[in-house]
Design a protein around this nucleic acid. Structure first.
Lengths: 209, 209
DNA sequence: GTCTATACTTGGATAGAC
DNA sequence: GTCTATCCAAGTATAGAC
């Protein structure tokens, strides 16, 4: 007969593992205090554990931060994939992208991304790891672009790779500017305008409509 | 009768002032070593002067960095203004923008901008100062957009502020990605594609053509 | 105005007890 | 696996001689 395990917070801690607790504390610390303030000591304070655990489990603060970025990236990618896979028209795509952006902003995901990319400059050895984690987003965007452009008469004229790079750049740049100025209004206005212009574009370019 | 002054490097130093020497050393250090490595000690080593001078002349490293950003921003703004003020068609504008981007990349201006924006996350007290220094670029871009769109039949439909914000975001995001991956190819490909698509757009939308 | 020397702080990282 | 205690490096900033 199996002995019954612990319950409550302790059980949660064991089930999720200390590693997960540390990763989540790292994400939360970046969101709340920014990259620069996310030291091993600050992460430990956020999560309520000892500073030395960071090094025991991850070897270095940098390796922990990369694990944290992986963690949020996976969550966000799953969210975007579910929202976009069922979409194949430009207006729908813009609407979904706008909605997901609002979620990212409210949930602090944008802040984590912006802080990590910014941090890559502060810790150059972090650069390649973060760059590698941007590639899936470009590929993902390119897939969506190809699907939507297939219905357009100008689709074949626009290199999908360039358009995907432009979209990711635009998203990233808008996130950095929003994050920098702490003023969400310009980006929101841009998304609203995009939602209005999208259907127009579709009208003009729809193949064989 | 005026006594003749010193010559050579010494004269240059006096004429430009120590402040300028320090600012230029700061810019060069950011370009060569990145934001994180741009400490008072590193700047002093680059410029061949004493570390304490940074604090005597600027009070803090942060204040020096802001002065350095002002310095490069003024140079770049003058360059862009001269190039763009004489332009009023979309293809020309894209060509000029592409050229200026190449210059920025080669001259390291993009690196300075990217490092400073990244650094704003690392040093939160730097954020507002840098945000304020992005505004002139959005306004400048909006002016160019308004002039070019005046010739287009769809011009009145596109809010110029949104388009300007999008262009600056795209530029910034592309710069950050290029900087991060150290691969200039995607951004260059995007600019080439833009140069091809621009004339097409103009053909389609030219007012009363 | 510019230098040397140094006080002070923060944070990464490890040793060793438990 | 987790804790306490500590070492060490790097950097800001200042005091005070020149």
């Amino acid at each position: 007969m199996a002995k019954s395990g612990p319950t409550g917070a302790v059980a949660r801690s064991i089930r999720e593992g200390t590693r997960s607790r540390i990763v989540e504390a790292a994400v939360q610390t970046i969101k709340e205090r920014g990259f620069a303030a996310t030291s091993a000591r600050a992460i430990a304070a956020t999560g309520g554990f000892n500073q030395a655990l960071v090094f025991y489990h991850f070897g270095s603060v940098n390796d922990l931060l990369i694990a944290a970025l992986d963690h949020t990236s996976e969550l966000r990618m799953a969210r975007y994939r579910a929202a976009i896979d069922s979409v194949d028209s430009m207006p729908e795509l813009l609407a979904v992208a706008s909605e997901a952006y609002q979620e990212d902003l409210a949930g602090g995901h944008i802040k984590v991304l912006a802080e990590m990319i910014a941090g890559a400059s502060a810790m150059p050895e972090l650069g390649p790891a973060i760059a590698a984690r941007m590639q899936p987003w470009i590929t993902f965007t390119e897939d969506a672009v190809i699907r939507v452009m297939a219905r357009s008469s100008v689709g074949p004229l626009v290199p999908s790779r360039d358009l995907a790079f432009a979209i990711v750049s635009l998203y990233l740049g808008a996130a950095m500017l929003t994050h920098l100025t702490e003023d969400p209004a310009p980006a929101e206005s841009l998304f609203r305008t995009g939602a209005k212009v999208g259907p127009l574009l579709e009208l003009v370019t729809l193949r064989g409509a």
